[in-house]
Amino acid sequence: MQNNSSNRRNFLGGAVAGLGLLALPMPALALTESAARSLVDQVVADINQVIASGKSESAMLRDFERIFTRYADVPIMARYALGNDGRRASAAQMRNFTKAFQGYISRKYGRRFREFIGGRVEVEAARQIKNGYEIRSKAYLRGEAPFDVTFLVSDKSGKNLFYNIFIEGVNLLLTERTEIGAMLDRRGGNIDQLIADLNATS
């Protein structure tokens, strides 16, 4: 798997560098297992590259945000995290929330990626699910027992993107819906205040 992904990366090399294959619209192609697998390979490779770059933390966090928006279906994730409160949000509020959400997620989880230094993620199995594919992988961290990371990939947005991640069964979307819901409750349901505060978190 690792070989595969590095070959693919070399092959892509210069030509599409910076663009990212998956940022190109490809709605005509149905999602295949290999496309779903390669998406995950690509995400992992990009994250590893950022970690290895030795940039400052704030620069890395900006890179992670770019990776997140490139490979994840951020709008559907943000919509889900906002839950029922999303129903009363205006289009503009939804847009602003989505943007705030993507920054918040990138910073929150990007910080944790430090723990991945020297580690690796190997794709193990793929299986079809209702919305696309489930890609199971194992993360190997230094000095830790390997653990299970599962990506859910879909093309429902018109592109192949992941829309949820499970780490040892812990579902990112559900966990963030709990967190965002609690933040909103604390602000008396004020969505604009929530957006402002999400943007302010560093």
């Binding site: 559907i76 994730m77 889900y80 209702k130 299970d148 429902k156 829309y163 499970f166 069964g169 579902n171």
Partner: peptide, 19 residues
């Protein structure tokens, strides 16, 4: 979530479906 995963593993049926 973590405990249920340990005991039962995850199955596609239990996935939340944002779509």
């Amino acid at each position: 979530q973590n405990r249920r995963f340990e005991l039962e593993g995850n199955s596609g049926d239990s996935y939340v479906d944002p779509y």
